[in-house]
């Protein structure tokens, strides 16, 4: 079972709807026991980083997520959820979960911010099983003002260009982060979600 973490401010329904279409068993929860029992976690995301971290902490979910993921439980962070996996965010100058070393930075001020719309993702390893049936440079739906900058470049699995090139997919063992809303990215998004769930199933 996959636990979609409910921390008060995000687009839970769209993530659950996308998983339901794949016939995956899900629970939307903010209960610590449920999160601990789940085989894998999804940290969705719409909203501001500071509010997101505050809500996680208030519900005492931050430590559970960190512990479980460090022990090997798979987690998918989507949009803000991906950013919260990092060490620190410039949005509100806050510490995040610290599961991935690196910072969250603001997109280049020369561009319109937020970036809203469909943009291409260049895959660093298009042969990976995670990208089965997904052509390189497929379009995905982005809505964000900040992006992740991991220290370790080897975990960057997808790159998108908006003013600058930045990491739009990261994969580090049991941790996957996507900056775009794969639950809202039509066919490409559904395929990627399915591949990620398969990958998680193999890890469990």
């Amino acid at each position: 079972m996959i636990a979609i973490i409910d921390y008060g401010i995000n687009n839970l329904e769209s993530v659950r709807n996308a998983l339901n279409k794949l016939v995956v068993q899900t629970v939307v929860t903010n209960k610590r026991e449920m999160i601990q029992k789940a085989d894998a976690l999804i940290l969705p995301g719409v909203g501001a980083a500071a509010m997101g971290m505050k809500n996680l902490k208030e519900r005492k979910l931050d430590k559970i997520i960190i512990n479980d993921v460090r022990k090997g439980k798979p987690i998918l962070g989507i949009c803000l959820g991906m950013q919260l996996l990092m060490s620190k965010s410039d949005e509100g100058d806050i510490n995040c979960l610290g599961l991935i070393k690196g910072n969250v930075k603001k997109l280049s001020s020369e561009m319109k911010i937020p970036q809203i719309g469909w943009n291409q993702v260049c895959l660093t390893d298009s042969e990976s099983a995670l990208f089965t049936n997904i052509p390189d440079n497929s379009d995905f739906y982005f809505v964000h003002s900040y992006y992740c900058k991991p220290y370790d470049q080897n975990i960057v699995a997808g790159i998108t260009k908006y003013g600058q090139e930045y990491c739009s997919i990261l994969i580090k063992n049991n941790i996957v982060g996507v900056q775009f809303h794969l639950e809202k990215s039509g066919m490409s998004g559904s395929l990627l979600l399915k591949n990620i769930i398969n990958y998680f199933t193999q890890l469990c």
């Binding site: 501001a48 809505v143 003002s145």
Partner: peptide
């Protein structure tokens, strides 16, 4: 609303 949910929405 922007503070709670982010400007993007």
């Amino acid at each position: 609303c922007a503070q709670s949910f982010g400007s993007q929405c």
